[in-house]
């Protein structure tokens, strides 16, 4: 039985608190990539996790199937009623697609923000403590996954790649309440689309928060929210959810909306990592950055001059 907090131990405790603060400070800053020891531990654990998770998914899937069998009749009735609707919808979709193709040929644009390639990945873990909403997937930079790529399930967008190591990556779900968790979104209205940001999860009302909607926008409940493709790496038109309620923000200048997510963030097994093929927007974005850098230099010189002028 140790003597709690004798002098030597008190010093040890102090040192470990300092180490703790240093580690937290190191990992809280915005990092472009993670350090190699982190990558090593994640990849090694990830290999074992892949082996562990596959049979578990099968078993869970089997029990899920057994539960499904009970509801087959009701589901069948519902789906039959939807079937007719679907036939007319798909015919409409085909004609719209063809029209889109011809229009694109007319204006001569081949690339669009909505083109992308997908890579499927298996979910190998989920953060057990509920403080952050992250999942791990078994594809990494070796498979072409990079930071900030969009991650989707067939129902819609679920999050973005937070960190990527060689063979595994972690995905930050849209429901994560971190302040940096932000996605550029748009609302499909009858006129022009309305652009806004998805900013995390509302704990009390259980929905995604869509913020900074312009006050003159014509937004109603039930409208579809999707990615805008303006954020840089996300493609355009991935479903996020639909608006369930709308209210002015605390200053009355913009609107906030609550979005009911289209995808299920809870029972995840297979997800798709999306890479946008079009680079059109990025090229346009690089130019103003260069100009800014050029502009910055004279400003710095100006400051130096001021200091020199002020010192004597």
């Amino acid at each position: 039985m140790p003597h709690f907090f004798s002098n030597k131990r008190l010093i040890l405790l102090m040192v470990s608190i300092i180490v703790l603060v240093a580690f937290i400070g190191f990992s809280m800053r915005e990092r472009d990539s993670i350090t190699w020891p982190e990558k090593f531990f994640r990849d090694t654990t990830g290999v074992v996790q892949s082996v562990f998770s596959q049979p578990a998914h099968w078993t869970a899937g089997f029990f899920g199937n057994v539960a499904d069998v009970v509801h087959v009749y009701e589901e069948n009735q519902l789906l039959k009623s939807r079937m007719e609707e679907f036939a007319s919808m798909s015919a409409e979709l085909e004609s719209v697609k063809q029209e889109n193709e011809t229009l694109k040929e007319m204006i001569g644009s081949e690339e669009s923000l909505s083109n992308y390639t997908t890579r499927s990945a298996l979910v190998i873990h989920r953060t057990p403590d509920g403080w952050t909403e992250m999942i791990g997937i078994n594809k990494g930079t070796q498979n072409g996954v990079e930071k900030d790529m969009a991650v989707v399930t067939p129902e819609g967008l679920i999050g973005k790649v937070d960190t990527a190591s060689e063979f595994t990556s972690t995905v930050q779900l849209l429901s994560d309440s971190n302040r940096t968790n932000r996605v550029s979104a748009m609302v499909a209205t009858e006129n022009d689309p309305v652009y806004a940001f998805i900013e995390g999860w509302d704990e009390e009302r259980e929905g995604l928060m869509l913020r900074k909607i312009e006050s003159d926008a014509q937004i109603e409940e039930g409208q579809q929210v999707m990615t805008s493709g303006l954020g840089g790496i996300f493609p355009q038109g991935l479903a996020i959810g639909e608006i369930s309620s709308l209210e002015p923000d605390e200053y009355g200048l913009t609107y906030n909306a609550l979005v009911e997510p289209a995808a299920d963030y809870y029972n995840l097994e297979q997800v798709n990592v999306i890479e946008r093929t079009s680079e059109t927007l990025d090229e346009n974005m690089e130019q103003p950055e260069d100009e800014e850098e050029e502009e910055e230099e004279p400003v710095e010189i100006g400051e130096d001059d001021l200091e020199e002028g002020g010192s004597p």
Binding site: V19, L20, V21, A22, F23, I24, F26, S27, M28, P37, E38, F41, R42, T45, H125, T127, P128, D129, W131, T132, M134, G136, D162, T163, T170
Partner: peptide
């Protein structure tokens, strides 16, 4: 390292 992005808390 594996489950969260913050190093130090659980350690």
């Amino acid at each position: 390292i594996v489950y969260t992005d913050l190093i130090g808390i659980y350690m």
